Amino acid sequence: MTLPPLLVALACWFFGTAAIVWLDSRPRRTWKWSFAALGLASIAALVAIALLARSASVGAVYGSVVSAILIWGWHELGFLTGHVAGPRRTPCPPELAGWARFKAASATVIHHEIALALTALLLFAVSWGGPNQAGPLAFLLLFGMRLSAKLNLYLGVTNLSDEVFPAHLAYLKSYFGTKRWNVLFPFSVLFGLGATWLAWHAAEATAQPGLAAGYTVLAGLAFLGVIEHALLMLPVRDAVLWAWAAQPQAAKAVPSKRRP
């Protein structure tokens, strides 16, 4: 029973990311339609999570997770296409440092982070009391790992993997740091490994196949998050994993100076 849930986690991570890269790399005139269509699909996914929360069967658990991934993808597309980001959309002034730089960086993504947090609360609200919390937990896990990744990018990492970064968000690169190490990174990895262990332990402890499958999916997603964090510090251009999904006509971002 262990392998299928892990394959579900891997498929959600790989094909979900590829789908967003493909949609974001299409001509700009298509973005509003893609965002709207995925928004409608997300409403259906929200309803699905609410209904599936009543069942702890394996199918219901998988359906809840996939629905949460779809909603997550809508948020990611909204960010990458510039629909939901933050009030600040200009490069970081070179003289900014310390708290002033952090506030400026936060202003570039704060609307997106608030939207994610509110969505997580909504998912738990519509499924509250149900035995199947796989979808809301998956969304919350992705939110935590993504927030950690953004903070690591701000503090400085070795590998930015910005080859498929959209050109209209090139200003964000000025807020990234390039370092061989940062103080948050080991704690981020420990958080991811801890989440992996907790989910795996919960899967082993329950006698219900559906719940076991759900916790195993969460363990897989958490471990994939750890791998993503590790790639931030390794000299590996992991963006090649998604390059096949990006359309050739996608605009390329102009490299910008990054703070050391």
Score class of each variant (00 low, 15 high):
236 V>I: 15
32 K>P: 00
219 A>E: 03
167 A>P: 00
94 P>I: 08
67 S>E: 09
82 G>W: 08
97 A>D: 14
103 K>I: 01
244 W>A: 13
159 N>D: 13
17 T>A: 10
69 I>Y: 14
173 K>R: 14
168 H>A: 09
255 P>G: 09
158 T>F: 08
172 L>C: 09
14 F>D: 01
6 L>G: 04
108 T>R: 13
256 S>R: 13
101 R>S: 03
116 L>P: 00
149 A>L: 11
235 P>M: 15
34 S>Y: 14
215 Y>V: 02
134 A>T: 00
49 I>N: 05
81 T>I: 13
174 S>Y: 03
181 W>V: 06
171 Y>K: 04
133 Q>Y: 07
22 W>A: 12
246 A>F: 05
234 L>D: 11
189 V>R: 09
220 G>W: 03
232 L>H: 03
9 A>Q: 06
151 L>K: 07
80 L>H: 13
3 L>Y: 10
12 C>F: 04
212 A>P: 00
37 A>R: 13
88 R>V: 09
5 P>M: 03
89 R>N: 02
13 W>V: 04
213 A>R: 01
220 G>M: 02
258 R>N: 04
189 V>A: 13
82 G>L: 10
93 P>D: 08
176 F>A: 00
206 T>I: 08
160 L>E: 06
255 P>K: 05
10 L>S: 07
75 H>S: 07
199 A>L: 08
171 Y>A: 12
118 L>N: 11
121 L>K: 05
95 E>I: 05
110 I>D: 12
71 I>E: 05
36 A>M: 13
155 L>F: 12
173 K>G: 01
31 W>A: 06
43 I>C: 14
244 W>Y: 11
31 W>C: 01
207 A>Q: 10
201 H>F: 13
220 G>F: 02
197 W>E: 06
155 L>H: 07
19 A>W: 03
149 A>Y: 08
121 L>A: 15
104 A>Y: 08
190 L>T: 04
88 R>I: 02
253 A>N: 12
224 L>S: 11
15 F>I: 07
71 I>K: 01
168 H>Y: 06
33 W>I: 03
22 W>D: 06
116 L>R: 01
190 L>C: 12
138 A>P: 00
33 W>L: 09
208 Q>G: 04
157 V>C: 13
177 G>D: 01
2 T>V: 14
242 W>M: 05
27 P>L: 05
119 T>D: 06
76 E>Q: 14
250 A>Q: 09
192 G>P: 00
175 Y>E: 01
150 K>Y: 07
23 L>N: 03
27 P>V: 03
191 F>A: 15
146 R>E: 06
122 L>S: 07
162 D>C: 08
259 R>P: 00
29 R>S: 13
56 A>K: 03
258 R>T: 06
79 F>M: 10
197 W>R: 14
111 H>V: 01
64 S>V: 08
171 Y>I: 02
236 V>S: 11
3 L>W: 14
101 R>I: 02
9 A>I: 03
150 K>P: 00
250 A>E: 07
215 Y>Q: 07
24 D>I: 01
106 S>A: 15
124 F>R: 00
